[in-house]
Design a binder for these strands. Structure first.
Length: 435
RNA sequence: GUGUCCAUAGCUUAAUGGUAAAGCUCCGCCCUGUGGAGGCGGCUAUGAGGGUUCGAUUCCCUCUGGACACCCCA
């Protein structure tokens, strides 16, 4: 028996079922879609301007990819993955993020032989099984940029941040804030972790932090528990522990950002939840908000973790739902108006048939035509035309068909004029232009 | 995973331990050839399951979904 979440009622002989979208997931309705298209368009333009090409990977990946890539001890892998086992016995998961899949694709498809670095972008759904709340969904869409290969050059870190910043600028989000930090590399991070662990040892910390001290000590830095707050001030700063190379790298990133006047604030307490980051990490916040709308960083070791050759890389992912919410709330982002279409009204069966032919003529001329051929009443059709704010209505009745005419009605003024049917496309074109 | 609040028609809201009401939307008619108005009419609801009760939409439990917060995160 398959467990189903449909609600069922048995009344008499018939069964009534009702379905709802899965928890934390929602429909993008026709009224919302133009907005999404706009956001997608902006993302595409920004990404392609900076030399990124689109990639789309499968929604399902081997669970192991995320365990190795994102990290076994992370919340994402520990408790937020939608995992399933196929009939063949494979363990798959709905992707909770796209960096690991993109790296997998790079390795699998031999992109290492392309000119380096390879720049890829995506705008795709990811899935996380956590409890929904403000700005948090179980299915969310991420706009992401990844620069893969080449050198571990700070200029790439900066470029990713610049592109992300421009994306939000184009979405009319004012005064977004980039918080940035460096969490070092294999050489310097272990030293820092040791110092940090020493510092916190024998100090009064919260339960979560006791666990973090063992599994992921860096996370002690962004603990929000009151008990731990006073300790943060005295904690050793990672920026003082960076090795010479990491220091130079971080300095480089900041200098490039200064060069193009991207505003940022240093946040030495910023660490990221995923295992694969090294050196640069950053998060982007809307003005006055504390929910990140984008985050990213450098991940020079991820390729090795996934069985590839050592390959430096840096990337970021923005939450599209959150960006849209913030943009709408700030008022800069608006729902685009649909392109106006003329409306074809028919009266009678013969004209109904001929109307289909006429529609094709307009299609060839690139003019959008709406109709409601299913309705036969003239009033009802005009009503519909008015409701959808068609600038012009074409009225095609028996009389007109007989005389090879058609009436063009200006819906705002109510002025009508009969024109020869052969001229109607041209006439409409003319009127739309002058309007 | 935990906690708090919530669930009446497509939408917004009303009411009651005893026949569920309205506005907007939608559909139809007035309107055998002229729209946004008006009039008339119609469709559609107590999220699902169980319990208490003569009787539950109302009280109780479970499930599902929603809002918010924690954890964590885009």
């Amino acid at each position: 028996m398959i467990k189903t979440k449909a609600n069922k009622t048995r009344t008499g002989g018939s069964e009534k079922v009702s379905f709802q979208a899965p928890r934390g997931m929602k429909d993008i309705l026709p009224t919302e879609w133009p907005l999404w298209e706009k956001v997608f368009k902006i993302g595409k333009e920004v990404a392609e301007f900076y030399g990124f090409s689109r990639i789309e990977t499968p929604i399902l990946e081997n669970t192991d990819l995320f365990i190795r890539g994102v990290g076994e001890a992370t919340d994402i892998v520990e408790k937020e993955m939608y995992s399933l086992r196929t009939k063949g016995g494979d363990h798959f998961s709905l992707r909770p993020e796209l960096t690991a899949p993109v790296v997998r694709s790079y390795i699998q498809n031999g992109m290492g032989r392309l000119p380096q670095p390879v720049r890829l972008y995506y705008m795709s759904p990811v899935f996380r099984h956590e409890n929904p709340q403000a700005g948090r969904y179980r299915e969310l869409h991420q706009f992401g940029l990844e620069v893969l290969g080449g050198e571990s050059d700070p200029v790439y870190d900066a470029q990713v941040i610049i592109a992300a910043y421009r994306f939000f600028e184009e979405l009319k989000l004012k005064n977004v804030i980039v918080q940035i930090n460096s969490i070092g590399c294999r050489v310097c991070r272990p030293n820092y972790v040791r110092r940090l662990t020493d510092y916190y040892k024998n100090k009064k910390i919260c339960k979560d932090c006791e666990r973090r001290l063992k599994t992921n000590p860096l996370r002690l830095l962004d603990c929000k528990n009151e008990i731990c707050q006073p300790l943060k001030a005295g904690a050793p700063s990672i920026l003082n522990s960076l090795c010479v190379n990491c220091k130079a790298h971080f300095k480089g990133v900041l200098e490039y950002l200064d060069e193009v006047a991207i505003p940022y604030t240093l946040n030495p307490l910023l660490v990221r939840g995923l295992d694969y980051y090294s050196r640069t990490v950053f998060e982007v916040f809307p003005e006055g908000g504390d929910l990140a709308i984008a985050a990213g960083g450098r991940y020079d070791y991820l390729f090795e973790m996934l069985g590839g050759r050592p390959t430096p890389a840096v990337g970021m992912a923005a939450g599209i739902e959150r960006a849209i919410e913030v943009g709408l709330a700030a008022g800069g982002l608006t729902v685009p108006k649909p392109r106006p279409r003329i409306f074809l009204v028919h009266v009678g069966d013969i004209t109904k048939r001929k109307a289909l032919v006429l529609i094709e003529d307009f299609r060839k001329s690139g003019i959008g035509v709406a109709e409601s051929l299913g309705k036969d009443s003239l009033s009802a059709q005009l009503e519909r035309a008015a409701k959808m704010e068609a600038p012009l209505a074409l009225i095609f009745g028996q009389k007109e068909a007989f005389e090879d005419n058609i009436i063009i009605r200006d819906m705002t003024t109510g002025v009508q004029e009969a024109v020869p049917i052969t001229m109607v496309v041209e006439e409409v074109k003319k009127r739309l232009k002058s309007a």
